[in-house]
């Protein structure tokens, strides 16, 4: 099982493998609950390839590697901030109105991320367009708040959200790398070949669907048994 995973996608496996031996704290760190949550969310429950969640930004913001990475990081910041807030307020929010309350908390943090991006990184913000505000309806942000943060301490919830966010950033960057390489012959904006014929199909929506579909198929083929969900 472990071997099958190592073969699946080197990047994901190295995240998992590096977690155990590389760090000096290895003796205690991998045993802590927070660390387990973090690693599980990055790979075993990867939001994009395993759970098939948050598909809209996955496709809309990955025509360039840098856009995918920025969208992933913006989502990560919003998820960590909202999960921590929800966990801190978990004993204050009445159970009956918790979903609207979570939505307002998430909308608040996403607004802040959006305004910060617009102020300090205007070109990136323009490239991502409405996909940054749309983090509000990103289902794993609400999912982590409801399933994890509403029952756990702020610190643990932050780690859980960080794991999901890192897994999401990793997936989006991988997709962006493939699409940018085939679509423009470049990586992170650096032209790799002269006279590269652009695969226009990779830049337009159709390419996004095809690449994500193949990724999902490859991940499922090499490490079956992961849950495949699908929400909103």
């Amino acid at each position: 099982m472990a071997e099958a995973k190592t073969m699946a996608i080197p990047t994901g496996a190295s995240v998992q493998a590096a977690s155990a031996p590389a760090i000096p704290l290895t003796q205690q760190l991998p045993q802590t609950k927070g660390w387990k949550e973090l690693v599980r969310d990055i790979w075993d429950d990867n939001p994009t390839f395993r759970m098939i969640l948050a598909m809209c930004p996955t496709m809309g913001a990955t025509n360039m590697a840098i856009n995918g990475m920025a969208q992933g990081l913006a989502t990560m910041v919003a998820t960590v901030a909202s999960s921590t807030t929800v966990a801190a307020l978990r004993n204050v929010i009445p159970a009956e109105v918790r979903l609207p309350a979570y939505m307002i908390i998430i909308a608040f943090w996403v607004t802040i991320v959006d305004i910060v991006l617009r102020a300090y990184m205007p070109p990136l913000s323009a490239a991502l367009g409405p996909y940054v505000p749309l983090i509000i309806t990103n289902c794993f942000v609400l999912g982590r708040a409801e399933a994890f943060a509403s029952q756990n301490s702020p610190g643990l919830s932050a780690l859980d959200a960080l794991g999901v966010g890192l897994g999401f950033t990793m997936s989006l960057t991988l997709l962006g790398i493939v699409r940018e390489f085939l679509g423009f012959g470049s990586l992170f904006g650096i032209q790799l070949f002269s006279g590269w014929t652009n695969w226009v199909i990779m830049i337009i929506p159709a390419g996004a669907f095809l690449v994500v579909g193949l990724y999902v198929g490859i991940v499922k083929h090499f490490s079956p048994g992961g849950q495949v969900g699908g929400g909103s």
């Binding site: 390419g207 579909g213 999902v216 198929g217 499922k220 083929h221």
Partner: peptide, 23 residues
Amino acid sequence: IPEGLKGPGLALIIAGLMAMSFV
């Protein structure tokens, strides 16, 4: 259908082909 592509994988690829026709 190949086992890995059953479900979401194939749905995404079909969507890709549909998107191509909408181009």
